[in-house]
Design a protein around this nucleic acid. Structure first.
Lengths: 212, 212
DNA sequence: CGAAGATACGGAGGCACCCTCCGTTTAACA
DNA sequence: TGTTAAACGGAGGGTGCCTCCGTATCTTCG
């Protein structure tokens, strides 16, 4: 699978090797020491000079991106699979739960993304877009089926989910977030009784016919 | 030796003055440059040496604490006032909304608290305890009145609230969080109808005594 | 008031990290 | 095997953290 139809020189072997080494080292170091860990430590662990690290990944965020892009994609693909689930509400619920588990496993990711959010980096743009799409497709199904209220955007939901997971370094966070997500999904359901009571929020989305 | 708890010498005037100056400078610098701003910048702005700053506030968190303790207290007191509101659910909702506004105003606070959480500092312990109590008293009223489910702890709620607000640097975060909070409170309400028919989702909850 | 302590001040200095720049090395290609 | 562009590595200048200690200032008491 090498269509190097380009007339460009083949990339040097040592460059590729070093890039890979740095990535591996970064994954290890970030997982151990958080996303603020020293880049010089990463370089040392990778057995390359600091200059090499910076040539491959000019900014810290570039490194994050290379490390975590794949993980975000996994989470996004899971949504795709869940779209085949019968009950759309259940699908959304499952995705959110899987998200929690995901965060629990790859602890580095959330912190990195949180950093990325603040710096407005490329990783943020990519992840946000990708996950919004994922969550959006699940949400939309549920709304279309008349099972969920239509005035909540995927961005809203993602933000809430993400925020909750951000507290992931307190003891017992995981079960806490799971409980909260249940409350959340309950709140998202179309509620005949609650509808009678004064609902303050106004629908931001015009479409979506609620049957029932 | 001598007991230093009761018969202490009057604190020196310059010490008090400098302490105050540092606090004021810190507030300004943190608000402008975020909670990671340089402490040496704070010292410079306060017109004191870096050594003086560190003597008064040995760690960054100590400084945060002195700056933000009052703000946390305000938020906590608001809960006290709201306890006189008739509708307990409404009281909780209002508190959460006020919290959002609060965060919008004192942008430094959330970031500082988020940092404090990660470092397990004193500020975190204090704030968490205080806000948990505040939110707990509101929550408890609603539960006692039979208006809200009883399987959610104040800690859960605080975590969720806080997490949502943590995304406070994206455009439109405020209205988004407000929407989410409404969903949330809806989910917290005791739902007679939803309990009967919904809940189709496979209850794969390992540990959660749902009263329903 | 003036001296004697006690207390606080300030910033130099050692350390870690960030990031850039450029002389040296090395892989790819002819 | 020689040429050459690409990649390497780490020295170095900058910033921030925090400690330490000689000096300055305040309080107290004779």
């Amino acid at each position: 699978m090498d269509d190097q139809t380009d007339q460009t020189r083949k990339p040097r072997a040592d460059a590729l090797r070093n890039r890979e080494r740095v990535l591996e080292a970064a994954k290890a170091v970030f997982n151990a020491g958080g996303p603020e860990a020293s880049l010089e430590a990463v370089a040392k662990r990778a057995g390359v000079g600091i200059g090499t690290l910076y040539r491959h990944f000019p900014t810290r965020e570039d490194l994050f991106e290379a490390v975590y892009r794949r993980e975000v994609e996994q989470l996004s693909e899971l949504a795709e699979q869940l779209k085949t689930t019968k009950d759309p509400v259940d699908a959304l619920r499952r995705w959110l739960r899987s998200g929690v588990e995901f965060v629990a496993t790859k602890k580095g990711m959330v912190a990195a993304l949180a950093l990325a959010v603040q710096s407005g980096s490329e990783l943020h743009a990519f992840s946000f877009e990708r996950l919004t799409t994922a969550i959006g497709s699940l949400l939309h199904r549920a709304v279309a089926a008349g099972e969920m209220r239509a005035d909540i955007s995927p961005e809203d939901l993602l933000r809430a989910f993400f925020g909750m997971c951000y507290m992931h370094d307190q003891p017992g966070w995981q079960s806490s977030v799971l409980r909260m997500l249940d409350v959340f999904v309950d709140g998202l359901r179309v509620q005949p009784t609650a509808g009678a009571k004064a609902r303050v929020a106004k629908p931001a989305k015009p479409a979506a016919k609620r049957k029932r």
